[in-house]
Design a protein around this nucleic acid. Structure first.
Lengths: 355, 355
DNA sequence: TGTTAGCACTCTATATGGCTGAGTGCTAAG
DNA sequence: CTTAGCACTCAGCCATATAGAGTGCTAACA
């Protein structure tokens, strides 16, 4: 089936498209017929290459910035390259071991692992690394614990099935008595374990409501405490290495840089972009979004390589590398793919550590 | 004493220096003699002003970018302006109430308040807002709680006297038994309450060591657990609004922008810069660091307005606004001053909430 | 029929020179 | 001490020229 579509371009066209993409990725300069022939030692004359390039332009794979400049790949050109021409790159042993080392150093909790993952992605790609956190509706409560901190404030500690711990402070009007704490805790754990984190408050309410009189007072107390806690966390994700964007020649223009940075400030949008990747895709493995394919204002000049990660058998989140459209796709695909496997393994171990 | 030094410059020189600083702060353009006379309706001829400006340049208060351009203040010029010429600006009632509103919305815990403060500083200043957190040696343990999460992992919850909660996960080799948890908790609280957070592990060790045989086993167990927890948090601070830097004309040059962003990535350095302000200064109130006075590579073109905040009577941290050297000092001084008072009040209330 | 050489053409980047406007320093007069 | 006047400097802007890279097209070639 892939072959059907490959036939859109003949052998020579493919070869030349590949050369253009390659050259542009490394030099960031529009590439001309002459330089291609020289650089890749082709057995053709520049004139012939010119003809082919003109064809490729007609078909929308290449683009000229102005009449007499070299050509640059379009989104469609990159897409064809990624789908049919790019040969998947294997990571070297040293790269693999580096990733492994960086990641397994801090195995304490899931949030820390994810933060570390985004850092690592930024390090090896020299671009911006992203890690989307599991949706609040996939996360289930594993353990809840109340604690009196001061007479007027209590702490609620929540542990979810990914091994993430969150501690919230709530103000209480009527002080928590020492003797009621153990009973409240037992009550909360008995009734709320396994509930989706995102539904905690509403679940708590309805479960409590269905309880018999005897436990009514306990239930009310517990609900009251929980509903005070700001449990929702807004579209969260980890990212690192945004500064690296400055290194790219495409951000010589500060207006461009600003656009992207503004987007990075709106974490919610990025988080959603990563989340959207989860739904659309059955086959596991890395995906590439090129320029406008992201459907995100501000990312027209950027590309995103993502890969989902799993906990156990369930796919719960996505990691990615964000960089200029002109990026080494084959390399990043390999990096992101390997890293997501690694992350899956770590998180699965963490979650499995005690059901 | 201030008057002695004011005499460095005579009336007219002061007037003109002030005019130059004012004009440059608002327009970001080098300012010439002619424009000054017009803009401030001076009763002098441009030629006279020129002479004075030449004097000011000789004394190092002003600077010319090239022979025939207007003048620009030097660090020393800004310094003189800030110390002697600037009239302190009062915040309007609406500004004050805005700050108050933004800050008191989330009173849940200290970390959240600080994050919110940095956000608020960025909002009202349109620059980068900074909040340095109290040193780990000023923070005292108020409450510690161990909890078994899975057989192989336990959670340690720490509450300090600033109302900050931190929960750490530690892996345990020998599972925590349900029955030993309450005893461990009582033991830990009895022995460690009031210890500086930064000294927790070492204090734990020495205290435990001094204990009698009977409690030996408990002590060993507790120390073992604690020493596994990564308690140190590296130079932490909150900041927000870095993107705003792009708005400033001085960052039209992306190399400049990059320098500053790189520094923002090194949180440790910034945290230290804020911390350094704590020690050097007896009188409370806002301080201004201008350009090279920061002694930070990368901040030569930036200025920092800071103000300390207190919990109770003790000064524990510093907040600040970071922006281009050419910034409205009087405004920011007022903002930072007012905000730090506000923050002090909030944190004091939080800490006092139950000793 | 596909390939190539040659050529005229286009367009960017770069350098050059002239001009203007803002600003200065200096001098001499008020 | 102040100011008017003047010569001078320099960045910014514009127009122009030039070089270099690249193109499209045509005609010749295998």
């Amino acid at each position: 089936m892939a072959n059907d579509r490959t036939a859109e371009l003949n052998q020579r066209e493919q070869q030349i498209l590949q050369a253009v993409v390659h050259s542009y990725i490394t030099t960031a300069e529009p590439v001309g017929s002459r330089s291609i022939v020289k650089r890749f030692g082709m057995d053709l004359s520049p004139a012939t290459v010119r003809n082919v390039m003109a064809d490729l332009e007609d078909q929308g794979f290449l683009q000229q910035l102005h009449t007499s400049s070299g050509r640059v790949p379009t989104d469609r050109g990159y897409r064809y390259y990624v789908d049919y021409l790019m040969r998947v790159q294997e990571l070297t042993a040293s790269e693999r071991s580096r990733i492994e080392r960086e990641l397994s150093a801090k195995l304490t909790d899931a949030d820390e692992i994810m933060r570390q993952t985004s850092h690592m992605l930024a390090l090896v790609s020299h671009q911006t690394g992203l890690v989307g956190v599991p949706d609040e509706h996939d996360a289930r409560l594993r353990r809840i614990e109340l604690m009196s901190v001061t007479p007027s404030r209590a702490a609620v500690m929540l542990v979810d099935n990914f091994g993430r711990v969150r501690t919230l402070l709530v103000g209480v009007e009527e002080p928590l008595q020492d003797h009621e704490v153990p009973r409240l805790n037992r009550f909360l754990n008995d009734n709320l374990k396994g509930v989706a984190m995102g539904d905690l408050v509403s679940s708590a309410r309805s479960i409590m409501r269905a309880l018999m009189d005897e436990q009514r007072r306990l239930a009310e107390r517990a609900t009251q405490l929980l509903s005070l806690a700001p449990i929702e966390r807004p579209g969260q994700l980890f990212f690192d290495g945004a500064t690296q964007l400055f290194e790219q020649p495409e951000f010589r223009d500060p207006a461009k840089a600003r656009e992207v940075f503004n987007l990075l400030d709106e974490r919610e949008k990025l988080a959603q972009l990563l989340r959207s990747q989860l739904k659309e895709r059955m086959p596991a493995g890395p995906t590439v979004m090129i320029g406008s394919e992201t459907h995100q204002e501000g990312l027209e000049e950027m590309s995103l390589v993502t890969s989902p990660y799993k906990v156990g058998e369930k796919t719960v989140g996505t990691i990615g590398v964000l960089g200029p459209r002109r990026m080494p796709y084959s390399k990043f695909t390999a990096v992101v793919d390997y890293t997501s496997r690694m992350l899956s393994r770590l998180l699965t171990r963490l979650a499995g550590g005690g059901a």
